[in-house]
Design a binder for these strands. Structure first.
Length: 414
RNA sequence: GCGGGAGUAGCUCAGGUGGUUAGAGCGCCAGAUUGUGGAUCUGGAUGUCGUGGGUUCAAGUCCCAUCUCUCGCCCCA
């Protein structure tokens, strides 16, 4: 094995893997497009403040996971750890507030400096959507239904569960946080070290702690739903009703929280038990305060992101490429004419491979390895008659076809 | 960042207690078949044994460090 290796947590993606990635991305793009989501591509790096300001100073992403560096001009630059901040920044930079509501689909690499595991990499890929400018819960319904639709189109409906919760508006969330902290402080000495730390930093996170004693304590904790004010309660009820109307199955999980500070109201995760500790496959929520926090006009938003690597691991089988034709020249004179024949077929819309060397036997072997549908054999005898031998690689049947009728004859193999 | 497991051919893996030229299957290459692929048969090449250091007459094997993968924690897609 060579000592030349990719950087830790990065991968070359090729052959079957890249086909699966492409399948995931193209399926998502096609379904999102049916819902009217326009694709947007934002830079993979931004000024560090774009992420630092929006993700919250206490989040792990900001404190330890960002790839941040100073460029030659002295600017602080960060490789994007997630997609929402960049879309929000573009919304402000491009003055898009005139055109609300807006719906975006994006895809591309994200970067987080963390310890790699299965389904968790330092460079990974996400697909995601954002819906900006709609305060009504119907927006949440559409965004979640779109996520469910994409997972269904990928054949994963039976492998995932949509877990759902409401964090309420700011008022509800603050009220709940206070009640929760009050309760947990009474059990502080029994909490795990991690959770005692979280009590200061991010108390809501304690709700989904994996520590057993924590779980026992959490079982008796006040419920978020009891702290929702009237507006928040109504919002959540409308969302649930909408999902039922849309036929999206869900499971309410009162302990579901989101790591990032800007979420409010709706939080959801599509999870699977097929990927070990990295069970979250598509997740998102509502972020009504984000754009104003970044310095833009008050603009509500909701969206989600999904990990392409994780989805690709769940997708069964390998998407097949279209089977090519192969042109096989025999002899020097035929080789000179083969490229012109090949180009003619390519211009006519066929996928055609023309090898660079080899005798007949080798070229036929390669045609077989490429899973060619048919071979167009150009031998001296055939060319002298202005024809080619067309061999069906499945049946082995071979027929002589005049070059002038080649495209028409090959139509059956398209 | 913390804890456990693992790194031998392109791939999947064998290599008791240290002992000569490190093996198998798959794949690859060549030939049987110089105008015909898949199947079969014959032959061939697989390699700094992850990397660096140490112990020893002798290290794939033992010790230390380091890197990468993997499982879990943290966190998240």
């Amino acid at each position: 094995m060579s000592s030349l290796k990719p950087v830790r947590g990065t991968r070359d993606i090729l052959s079957d893997d890249i086909l699966r990635h492409r399948h995931v991305e193209e399926t998502a793009r096609a379904v999102a497009s049916r819902y009217g989501y326009a694709e947007i591509s934002t830079p993979i790096f931004e000024f560090t403040e774009v992420f630092a300001r929006t993700l919250g100073d206490t989040s792990d992403i900001v404190t330890k996971e960002m790839y941040t560096f100073e460029d030659k001009g002295g600017d602080r630059i960060t490789l994007r750890p997630e997609g929402t901040a960049g879309v929000a920044r573009a919304f402000i930079s491009e003055g898009l507030a005139q055109n609300l509501p807006l719906k975006f689909f994006y895809r591309g690499p994200m970067f987080r400096y963390e310890r790699p595991q299965k389904g968790r990499l330092r460079q990974f890929h996400q697909i995601g959507v954002e819906l900006l400018g709609v305060v009504r819960p119907l927006a949440d319904v559409e965004v979640i239904a779109l996520g469910a639709h994409i997972l269904d189109a990928l054949g994963l409906a039976g492998k995932v569960v949509c877990e759902l919760n409401s964090l309420g508006d700011g008022e509800s969330r603050d009220a709940y946080r206070a009640r929760l902290v009050d309760y947990l402080k009474n059990h502080k000495d029994k909490l795990s070290a991690d959770s005692r730390d979280r009590l200061e930093r991010n108390p809501l996170r304690i709700l989904d702690s994996k520590d057993e004693t924590d779980r026992e304590i959490v079982a008796g904790a006040p419920l978020m739903s009891d702290s929702l004010n009237g507006d928040s309660r109504r919002f959540f009820d409308e969302l649930l009703k909408g999902l039922e109307t849309a036929g999206v199955p869900y499971k309410i999980n009162p302990r579901l929280v989101r790591g990032l500070d800007y979420y409010c109201h709706t939080a959801f995760e599509f999870t699977t038990d097929a990927l070990g500790a990295q069970g979250t496959v598509l997740a998102g929520g509502r972020y009504d305060g984000l754009i104003r926090q970044m310095g833009g006009p008050q603009t509500p938003g909701i969206g989600w992101a999904a990990g392409v690597e994780r989805l690709a691991m769940l997708v069964e089988g390998t998407p097949k490429l279209a089977r090519p034709l192969v042109v096989v020249p025999i002899g020097e004179e035929a080789e000179e004419r083969a490229f012109a024949v090949t180009q003619g077929l390519r211009r006519a819309g066929f996928s055609v491979d023309l090898g660079f060397s080899g005798n007949l036997g080798k070229r036929m072997k390669r045609a077989n390895a490429l899973n060619a549908r048919a071979a167009v054999i150009l031998g001296g005898d055939e060319l002298a008659r202005g024809a080619a031998a067309v061999r069906d690689m499945d049946s082995g049947e071979q027929a002589e076809v005049p070059l002038t009728a080649l495209e028409e004859h090959l139509g059956r193999f398209r």
